[in-house]
Simulated assay, not measured.
Amino acid sequence: MAALAGKRIGLLTARASRTNGGVFEAVVRQVDLLKTLDAQPVVVAAEDDSHAADAWRLAGAEIRLAQIHGPKHPGFAPRLTPVLLDAGLDLVHLHGIWSYASRAATRWSKATNGPLVISPLGMCDAWMIERNRWKKNLARLAWEKSAWSNAMAFHALTPAEAGDIGRECGAQLIGVIPSCASPPSQPRQTMPPPMVLYLGTIHEKKNLVALMEGWLAALPDLPPDASLVVAGWGDEEGVTALERFLEPMGPSIEFVSAAFASQKAALLELARFLVLPSSSEGLPISILDGWSAGIPAAISPACNLPEGYANGAALKCGPDRESIKTALIEALRIEEPEWLSMSRAAQALASGTFGKEHIAGQWRRIYEDCLGVLSPAQLERQISGKIPQ
């Protein structure tokens, strides 16, 4: 780890707040990992209204912001490049694509000849590519192709995403490293009450309407005290629309807005199952944190966590109402001995495959390889073990 001691690693992203959804969660985790590796994380982003409320989650990182001019998407912030250049960075790690941050990353790389690593974080998924494709085509021509050609390496969360990145970005050097889970809590001794928890952003790809419709359809076959809690955050318009939709749904569904730190821990303590019927994901941190807390999950294949099915920590749940209904009924019919077995399997994954120490070691090797004086051929040999065949 000494090789990274004192190195200034720039974590560049569109916005350093909850408005950046799962990308912000990835940045929060990367700050923590970099501190573990004795490096200095420097978060660089365009400023937005939610940053002040969320800055505490980046404790230990330097934070440098640039003002947005015009609409929040794609986040035109012309001062991003000077901010990057003034930060004295040894490496820039871009989190997320399709925003103006990609152009700033390219300019920094060209000006300094410094290494650029790109984590698309699920944004090359076919579902995401089709959404507002014309905007992505403009971004591709305006700045993304240049950023991709200047990147020393790409990071994929899963082998499936590595294929997406290769297809969309033409990338060759792709290291596959999953997100890391929180440290596991004490093993569960009893099964919680029949509360199912959704924890994440309010976004159409999460299929929240189908989730709530599936819940209501399943309700006659669920325990009488069963409840669904939706703990989510997003733009004001999306949250308002969700609240209106929830009004006639009845008392078995509750919306509790954003949940972090102690509020999140309290919800995880009470939940029997997590549910995430997404159409598109990178690798959902909310499920990993649920596994750390010993909570099994009902998740769609788009969550890219087949380990959950294979190891008995998750049930398969499609993105449509009927599939969600079936999964919810199955989840809440599980008896305590089987549930406790699933809980132990979930924590084993959180401490093993997705454990912090294991993931930090993988990132140490990637960063050290990129910071070394290596030719492209040497770098390819160094990280070839992480390139899916």
Rank of each mutant, 00 (worst) to 15 (best):
R333P: 03
W291T: 07
S279Q: 14
A265K: 14
S279L: 14
F255V: 11
Q263H: 14
A293N: 13
S341Q: 14
C317H: 08
L270K: 15
K325P: 01
I295D: 00
T326Y: 01
L328S: 05
A259K: 08
I285V: 15
V275H: 02
S341P: 08
G312C: 07
Q263S: 15
W339M: 11
G282H: 04
S341C: 11
G238N: 12
A293C: 12
A271C: 10
A293G: 12
L242W: 13
E236Y: 08
L246Q: 03
F260R: 13
D289E: 15
S257N: 13
S278V: 02
S292H: 06
E269L: 11
C317R: 06
I329N: 03
E338G: 07
E237A: 15
L267T: 00
I285C: 09
A327K: 04
E243L: 12
F245P: 00
G308D: 02
S341N: 14
I287M: 05
E307F: 00
N311L: 09
L305M: 13
L305Q: 06
E338T: 15
R272I: 11
E237S: 15
A314P: 11
M342I: 09
C303G: 10
G294I: 02
L288D: 03
L328D: 00
E243N: 02
A266N: 11
A297K: 03
E307W: 09
G318F: 00
M249V: 05
K264H: 08
F245R: 15
P277V: 09
L332V: 08
S300H: 06
P306N: 10
L332N: 12
P277K: 10
A297S: 14
L340C: 11
S278Q: 06
M342E: 03
E335I: 03
E336F: 09
I324M: 09
I329H: 01
F260K: 09
F260Y: 14
A259H: 01
I299Q: 07
A266I: 03
L276Y: 10
P296H: 07
D320R: 12
E336D: 08
